[in-house]
Amino acid sequence: MIRAASIETRDRRRALALAAPALAWTAAFFALPFAVMATASLWRRTDTGFDRRPSLENYADFWSQSAYVEAAVNSVEITLAVTCLSVLLAYPLAWIIAVELPERYRRIALALAVIPFWTSYVVRSYAWSLVLAKKGVLNGWLAAWGLGALDLANSRAATVIGFTHFFTMLLVLTIYASLVQLPRNLRLAAADLGASRFQTFRFVVLPLTLPGVAVGAFLTFALCIGDYVTPQILGGGNDLALPQLVMLQISRRADLPMAAALSVILMVLVTLAYLAMARWMRPR
């Protein structure tokens, strides 16, 4: 009896020792920095350094200055547009690859769908700025067809296009994964019972793949709203997104407390999105 207990203790100690390095790393370089950020968001920048008495003035500033609120609204609008567009573009392609295509072509079709992943993230946004530039490829084509030029460079539309490109690829993968798990028999059974193709999709396929879509959509939301690169390269200097504003506090104004407060607001937005979408993410 005593022996069994001591073996149990030994196993527990051993397991703790195995988990300790990862826990220590996460505590030192993730949890601690996070606490530092949350604390710093309550400080104030002064001419000589920081005023470390806790106050909510940064958050009050956020609410009272329209530039800050506008950036948050911009970010949410861009992110919602990107999430919806990407799901709408990716779902049919994932469906075609998972269901319509003969099995032997699936791997290659999927591999082709993510080829641009192979180039660098920064370069992908730059590549879109080439396409959308005033004298770029797109306007070249439009002119060749006798259509007027579009002024997309440095605009919110360019940001949305660049993001949608990236997240469509990502969502094709996640939605494909939930579609192939769906047994073919379920669709056949629905058809046998007299459901039309649309009804089968609406009442069988869509509800069963919804959790996969919701997880992908949340991932898109979280990654999109926190990204600095794409709005900075494609969106240009006006109509800032929240991460651009955060970086501006750091690089131009050396205002770490405000940057920290804006980051906290960013996290709150992601959490709200999670709460709003959580009920779709669970299989029913």
Binding site: P33, A40, V246, L266
Partner: peptide
């Protein structure tokens, strides 16, 4: 978000 992780570590 990576931006928040990076900023926290920087601070």
């Amino acid at each position: 978000s990576y931006l928040v992780i990076g900023l926290g570590l920087l601070a």
